[in-house]
Design a protein around this nucleic acid. Structure first.
Lengths: 243, 243
DNA sequence: GCCGATTTGTCCGTATGTATC
DNA sequence: CGATACATACGGACAAATCGG
């Protein structure tokens, strides 16, 4: 059970929308009504609503109400604006996830790598290559760089399970945010080999590069995720201006 | 000058961060201090800060403060989470934008197109092909579908300028949100021809499909944007949980 | 076109909880 | 432990947009 009231309300409303208890294109009950339903303050309710807005579940119109614009999307998708590990994402969508560690090593950041990753020159990092399978299909080839001084005791065994679980539950690290850039890049021979692709067919990959920060403000991770182009899907909901 | 207090504060802080008045990795002045600086309430200030968080400019840490994690990014990028037209984006980054209308026609949505666009079968739409140039390089091939009943009086001349400007300023339509999906697709002969590409080189495109809603809750636009892979860049900042 | 009721948007002040140092 | 800082929550006031009479 989540901690805060507004998050409980958010989840409850979200669920009701997904279960079509509120019809598509219909207005939700008014703020006033929902406040009485949940017995909370107006600010608290509005906060829950605003999360539904950024999720693209509803749109609010001043003077009118809150309209349900949720339509279900396919499952194998990755959603933006959220930090979710591969395992979490797979579990949420009810798919079988499996991770194979191709390489587990460590080295020092040189000038070229510093430019690419954003780590300072001379920083010591773990470099891990991992292949993520979804329902036995290799979908993502990950190149992880983890700052050693921020992540003591990382092993190949941990990398095979979930590194994020180790970070949060064992090291009690708090992950704050992750800056991501999506690009399209040429497929390499390594990509072809591990993702079981043929460059005669697709010769490009969807590449997501991310820099992740913890609560100490240190960028502890740089990751390049190379996705099979035919399975890659990224969702986003852009909102007008207000929050 | 923007209307609301929190937006003014947001812009002011954002500008100060961009101009490096606050140093990278440093903590901003505390909420209490900033409240006195701006002479506003706590809620108002926190609202401004929360927008900086979703922009990836700062991270807030309970008990510590608000840390500046802004680093400038290259210019030709598209940013997620915002609705911005091609013209606006180009202007913001100080580049020359030019739009060529390749095709301006109208027809009725059939079953196949209904599945693809999300418009109901039988709906009448404008179908527009436009080529967007940035600094004289053709970067994006756009396939726009606009619902006719929502957009009366659209002409080829308007499409050459800015359709969004027409929607907002002439028709006084309010754009609320836009659901987007990013994928990687095979390059077509049309893509090759207009974007001046050669499929011997890259044979894929970055494709952004979007459905845009107005304040009447009607999806009035479906657009497929096909981007040159070598120039395509999409930014995103993922945040932990809270808002 | 105006007015009033409804509904969301903005803003304020205050109290309490919780994490950091 | 206390001081500081952010997080959550409440209640109230007024503004602005929508809609129906």
């Amino acid at each position: 059970m989540p901690k805060s009231i507004y998050e409980n309300i958010y989840r409850d409303l979200k669920q009701k929308i997904e279960q079509k208890i509120f019809a598509y294109q219909e207005l939700l009950p008014s703020e006033h009504t929902l406040i009485q339903t949940y017995g909370c303050s107006r600010n608290t309710l509005r906060r829950a609503i605003s999360r539904l807005v950024t999720d693209g579940y509803v749109q609010t119109i001043q003077g009118k109400g809150v309209r349900n614009i949720y339509e279900p999307v396919e499952q194998t998708a990755f959603t933006l604006g959220e930090i979710e590990s591969f395992e979490e994402s797979a579990q949420r969508s009810g798919n079988r996830a499996f991770t194979k560690v191709l390489l587990f090593t460590e080295f020092e950041i040189n000038e070229k790598l510093s430019l690419c990753t954003g780590f300072p020159i001379g920083a010591r990092v773990y470099y891990i290559q991992r292949l993520h399978y979804l329902n036995d299909i290799p979908l993502i080839l990950n190149h992880n760089y983890f700052l050693q001084e921020a992540i003591p005791g990382l092993t190949k065994e941990i990398a095979e399970k979930s590194i994020y679980q180790y970070l949060e539950q064992t090291l009690h690290m708090t992950i704050i945010n992750s800056k991501r850039i999506m690009t399209v890049e040429k497929m390499t021979q390594i990509d072809e080999k591990y993702l079981n692709m043929n460059s005669e067919d697709y010769n490009c990959m969807a590449v997501v590069s991310s820099q992740t920060y913890n609560s100490d403000g240190v960028m502890f991770e740089y990751t390049q995720s190379r996705h099979r182009p035919d399975y890659f899907r990224f969702y986003d909901n852009a909102v007008r201006k207000p929050f």
